[in-house]
Design a protein around this nucleic acid. Structure first.
Lengths: 173, 173
DNA sequence: ATTGTTAGTGAGTAATTGCTTACAAATATA
DNA sequence: TATATTTGTAAGCAATTACTCACTAACAAT
């Protein structure tokens, strides 16, 4: 991975995340990265290939996170850790998550598979805790999660993240 | 509002909602509506004007909903009604809300003002119920709301809406 | 040193984009 | 009925789009 490849990925992520995939021409990415437009296609084949490369990097990060999660042994702690995830997203990863969430709304790119491993972990933990309907309970938590993530990623500078998390913590006690 | 104007708006909403505003060319809208492309610009000036017209219609619908909400006099009922809103969205309005939520993720179109009146109503109700930090509590509920809406609009056919709502209802009792 | 491979450029390309314009048909107004 | 206004079309426009291609520069392997 050369410097220029990294520059292309960085610029693409930044632009895709703020304006949306379809609104960003490859010419703009090249300009932002200080690179000729042709180089994008040399390295990533086409515009969709760029997006794939971006998602690949992100998915690897996510997988690490999931493994860390599976280290937690108490079911309750596991659920809490999942619910608080959006509040602990590293700020440098905001662009990636903004991109993921924005793509969800476009039929063509919608990819549900990303959330599945988390759902499985949740169901397992909820079953262990003898919840009556672990699946519905898991889907409800995942819905919360989407909401928290949206709020953090979109209104992070308006809404007080810490105060929100504090209020949330009081709820499950 | 002529038949063809309505056809244009319908087609635009359908396409924008499923593919995203930037991914849909005016030519595709015209074709879907069975209309010449020029007519779009005659009636709506430009592509952004089309979007504005769409949002205008939607905002009027929303305003009606808000007035219905203010009719509820018990603060508790008001909060419950707000929290359950996403589960009671009329299915014919799904495209509109999908469009709204997809636009949130694009800097250029992001419009926060739409959620404000709801936040005010929430804060008022929570203050009446003597919550310690009504603002944070309101923001938390709004975060839930975003999550519920996302789930209903995006996974409405995968996740069992009614079962989810039932599970949610058990929580606040 | 020579050769092969990869990294990088810049000028193209055909197709598509949002939008305009000249004109015709329909409809309202007098 | 005559006239003005609105609704509609088809062709065309400059600009932009994703992508290609011929080429050079850098670097590695033999």
């Amino acid at each position: 991975m050369t410097e220029k490849q990294k520059a292309i990925l960085d610029s693409a992520l930044k632009l895709f995340a703020s304006k949306g995939f379809d609104a960003v021409p490859t010419s703009a990415i090249a300009k932002e990265a200080g690179v000729s437009e042709g180089l994008i296609f040399r390295h990533f084949e086409n515009k969709a290939g760029l997006l794939n490369a971006l998602m690949q990097v992100g998915k690897e990060k996510l997988q690490e996170e999931m493994e860390a999660l599976s280290q937690i042994n108490k079911a309750e702690d596991k659920i809490v850790a999942i619910m608080e995830m959006p509040f602990h997203i590293d700020e440098e990863d905001y662009p990636f998550w903004r991109l993921v969430y924005s793509l969800k709304w476009q039929n063509e790119y919608y990819d549900d598979e990303m959330g599945k491993p988390m759902r499985d972990i949740l169901i397992e933990a909820l079953t262990e805790l003898k919840y009556r309907d672990p699946e519905a309970e898991a889907d409800l938590i995942l819905a919360y999660l989407d909401g928290f993530a949206t709020t953090v990623l979109l209104k992070g500078d308006i809404v007080d993240k810490d105060r929100l998390l504090q209020t949330l913590r009081k709820k499950y006690k």
